[in-house]
């Protein structure tokens, strides 16, 4: 393959720094015990050893984003009359994410279908997505709770990435997967990669077999409609859930949001913020009616969305990338892979 490159370990830092002069670069940084995607800076402690606590979804889908601002203007001749002026915010900088994991990159492809591949594309998501290059890193080992291979991914999966980097003995092997990815090969210190292709492939295959498969040897089967609609099943499965939003906010594929107006005096903003289907408010109506008032109904919707509704709508694609974060960071260790496993028909 022609579109490959290699960066020796000692030039890795300079490579990232070089890219950061051309675009806004997000890298996983260690803060205390937590790994987070942050804008690159020389003072940051980079951490590629394990997946970040939260995926890089906030780079393209910020936790809070201004859809537009509004200003009220009083008519000087008629103070009773107020005009409102709206201003959109649709300027997005060129951005590179380095060190996302294959599961994180797959998360963006789950977003793409409802956000860009429709007759009403979302200009905020689409704008950032087009301006962002996703440089993914092959996992060196699985993490607690992760199960990407069981949901169609792999620790070296290329879906959703512009380039894939695999750590080999002396450095980093890069494969460009898109035009945007090829630009990365122009970064400082990139050498010819041909000689390292073999090592990288071996490494990728080795990790693949280490990932657990929670769904048994036959893989993920069909969700049993009888069990799915059995209230007792859900009640038992999620009685321990505390209905917080850690699972949804840390999920690379969870894309629900809220829209609220935040006003100060004569101006304000309409913002779009992350929201989660696990919160009781999510579907609560002004009348007091709530179509999903109990946590088991909400959890059922969450699992249903990922493993049943989304696949129904988008050609069988599962809206779960198996990153394991919802399992790893769940306050009560609720395990979605166990629940889905138990949902499979006999």
């Amino acid at each position: 393959m022609a579109d490959t490159g290699f960066i020796p370990k000692e030039k890795w830092g300079a490579f990232i720094e070089g890219l950061s002069t051309k675009a806004q670069v997000y890298v996983p940084c260690l803060e205390g015990d937590t790994v987070l995607f942050r804008p690159f800076g020389k003072e940051k402690t980079l951490c590629f050893e394990r997946p970040a606590n939260s995926p890089p979804k906030s780079v393209i889908f910020p936790q809070s984003d201004t859809l537009f601002s509004f200003t009220f203007i009083k008519d000087p001749d008629n103070p009773q009359k107020t005009e409102v002026e709206l201003k959109e915010h649709l300027d997005f900088p060129k951005t590179i994410v380095i060190g996302s994991r294959p599961c994180d990159a797959k998360g963006f492809t789950v977003y793409d279908r409802p956000y860009t591949e429709t007759d009403t594309p979302d200009p905020y998501y689409k704008g950032r997505r087009e301006k962002t290059t996703i440089v993914t890193m092959t996992c060196n080992s699985p993490s607690a709770g992760c199960f990407c291979t069981a949901v169609g991914g792999s620790p070296a999966d290329k879906e959703g990435s512009d380039a894939l980097i695999t750590e080999v003995e002396k450095g980093y092997f890069i494969e460009a997967l898109t035009e945007k990815g090829k630009e990365i090969l122009q970064g400082p210190g990139v050498e010819d990669g041909k000689a390292y292709q073999g090592d990288a492939t071996k490494k990728q295959e080795a990790v693949h077999s280490m990932v657990k498969n929670p769904f048994g040897p036959k893989g993920l089967g069909k969700v049993s409609p009888e069990l799915f609609d059995n209230d007792e099943f859900w009640d038992n499965a999620v009685s321990k859930c505390v209905s917080c939003g850690a699972c949804t906010y840390l999920c690379p594929t969870c894309y629900c949001f809220n829209i609220t107006d935040e006003q100060t005096s004569d101006k304000g903003e309409r913002i779009r913020t992350w929201d989660g289907c696990m919160y009781v408010h999510f579907t609560l109506e002004a009348s007091g009616h709530n179509p999903r008032p109990t946590k088991f109904q909400r959890f059922k919707n969450r699992v249903g969305h990922k493993f049943s509704f989304y696949p129904e709508k988008y050609n069988g694609v599962i809206a779960c990338c198996g990153c394991g974060r919802c399992i790893r960071y769940c306050p009560m260790s609720v395990d979605i892979s166990e629940i889905v496993s138990n949902l499979q028909g006999a």
Binding site: Y115, Y255, C256, F257, F282, T283, N301, H305, S308
Partner: peptide, 16 residues
């Protein structure tokens, strides 16, 4: 309850 009105935000779904 609806927010986006274009089938994304996740509130008003009945299944898919």
């Amino acid at each position: 309850r609806m927010k986006c009105g274009i089938g994304i935000c996740g509130r008003c779904n009945l299944g898919s």
